[in-house]
Design a protein around this nucleic acid. Structure first.
Lengths: 207, 207, 207, 207
DNA sequence: TATGAATGAGTGTTCATTCAT
DNA sequence: TATGAATGAACACTCATTCAT
């Protein structure tokens, strides 16, 4: 009736999605009732159905949101004017910065839940998650290869294995971050990983 | 001829617990009905209640089982006659061997679910999981310190950070192992971590 | 035009409670399913839970209602301008009038059920029922004492025993009223009791 | 296989019936499981089915037993050599003696439960109970008539009403006896009733 | 005959979803 | 459009009853 119908709708949708995310993290997806979510969003349970077809779709939307957040993080971060290895380290910095952002734990928890849900038999979500992680993995691996090609990393390092190790460490740390309710000293881990990378640099002299 | 007192009961209990684990992994804990579990175990739903007081207790039993399996893994593996660092690498070998064991993916998936459940507001499980992980973390950290004391690792490596990094990598890899349905080349990761450790060895002068 | 705030809720609650009472009397409390009650109330089983937390609470509500009805009956009925004994007889009249009221048999049956339930080991209801009956008993007894003090009843009548006798007769008659489905000539009993009381009047010399 | 098969069977049957009665009183008929009864009787749940076809039949047997006990009480108690009124009072004595017998409360409680059960829609037990009470009532009424005929009771007393009053008082007192867990001074009530009867004697002289 | 493990029908309860207002 | 009462399908759990041992 008024103008900007789309904007309003989108704002409400986001509001509900965020409320749902908070409740999911707090009580678990199954234990969260539509009533809980509605209360958190400050509306009635029935109203949610104007924005989401079903609870399932709402769950998918929350998953989607967190997945996209993650995907975006790993994309196209290539600070100029540094060595490739330093650029790679810079991406690490960006990834680690997320630990300090508000709501990070909640997003991590949802991603964890999504991963778990995706691992279920015939869950359509599984494909999405796997695709995203394969994508991230490929990106890291190709980055590593470039660093190797630039002569900044030993050639006897398996790029796939290194990518897998790094992604594992990131995911595992996020898991612990969720589990220990943010009481984790994440910086030390980044430093260890960076030192590992530097340790993998080719020995220049004498060579 | 008459009854096998505790043996039968225990066997049955284990049977149900394992059936439950499989169903939990396949369908998720909440979606798994007692009927599903009973069918998987080849019995009627009512019969389960002879062995477990409630679905909740069954879930706890499955969690407990997987938790203990994990705890045991990290305990007191110290192969004789090798340097401490090599012993540490040996523990890594043992931990990695689990990836090849039957049912490993299921156990990992359950631990993931348990971690997630434990991260919920006021979930009593949370404490258990955190305690176990803290325990494992402490064990790794103290191991690292011993290696440092033996002069086999640089002193400027933060033992806590290294322990955290290693545990993160293990947990993250398990997560990916679950997600990619065992299609993960885990060995490469172990190798990378071992190379990292060797890279952290002090530079011997005479070498 | 919008909603009637408390009135609707209270009306609905009463409706359900009354429906439950009818079903309880007809089929017994345990045999009465929530479905039965819902059907009697013309709604779905789930809807009841908007008004009562559980079947147990519904049972308590029915008990409570019948208990209060009974308590109210024995309270403060003191018609003016008559002798105390006549006032007492008047209370009897009031109590007996209940036999003629619609729904009386149902309420009696519920009270019977409540008494029985309260007699169970550790049933919390027991205390409530005993307290109410002790209260009624005390009220009758003190009334009898006042009549004695006013010289309208022999002093060698034990007030407690008389109160107990009267309450017993009332309760027993109600029980038979329930059992014989209202086909009981209750009036005769009141008359007998009144004659008994008159028989207990002191023999006036000049009479 | 041994001799006295019938005696053994009967003994077991009685044992189970009594155990059932105790459990019924303690926990209520519906809450009492066959397991509870079996435990109380010191046997396995399955074994009961050798003696009773179903729980329902067991309930009926317990009801039957208590009903017969009651019927027997009111039968043929006519002490010789006294006035009819005194004989009537003697019957009262006998009835009241039951209050002091062991297990009286339990039997009363079961009778109460039976009455309640019998009051339900289409319950076949109802007829039995009503028949018994009608029988008792008739017996009392005819006794009262005989006393009137013997000139020991005023003719303007309605025998039916008096019988109803007496039975009501007995039943009501038993109910309170159950409710207050035997902490009831029953003797006083008998005395009141006896005084009432004496008050109903015709005034001999001057007439 | 006794046992007690297993069955399976039945019940209370929850909650996503709908719809009259 | 929003509300929240109502629905109804689904599920955990209980327990009378059966039956192999």
């Amino acid at each position: 009736m008024s103008r900007m119908p789309g904007a309003y709708l989108e704002a409400r949708t986001t509001e509900i999605r965020d409320a749902a995310m908070r409740v999911f993290v707090r009580k678990g997806i199954n234990a969260a009732t539509m009533q809980d979510i509605a209360s958190e969003a400050g509306m009635s349970a029935g109203a949610i159905y104007r924005y989401f077809e079903s609870k399932d779709q709402l769950v998918q939307a929350v998953f989607e949101y967190c997945r996209e957040e993650n995907r975006a993080l790993f994309e196209d971060r290539r600070p100029e004017g540094a060595s490739l290895l330093e650029a790679f380290v810079g991406v690490g910095r960006t990834v680690w910065d997320e630990f300090g952002e508000p709501g990070a734990r909640d997003r991590f928890a949802v991603r964890l839940a999504a991963t778990l849900a995706g691992s279920r038999e015939d869950d359509p979500l599984g494909g999405e998650m796997r695709r995203m992680h394969t994508d991230v993995l490929d990106r890291i691996e190709s980055f590593v290869r470039q660093i190797q090609d630039a002569g900044e990393l030993r050639r006897d390092i398996d790029p796939h294995a290194l990518a897998l190790t790094i992604l594992s460490a990131v995911q595992g740390l996020r898991m612990l971050f969720v589990e220990f309710d943010e009481q984790i000293e994440t910086e030390g881990v980044l430093e260890i990983l960076n030192r590992m990378l530097r340790g993998f640099m080719p020995v220049r002299e004498e060579n």
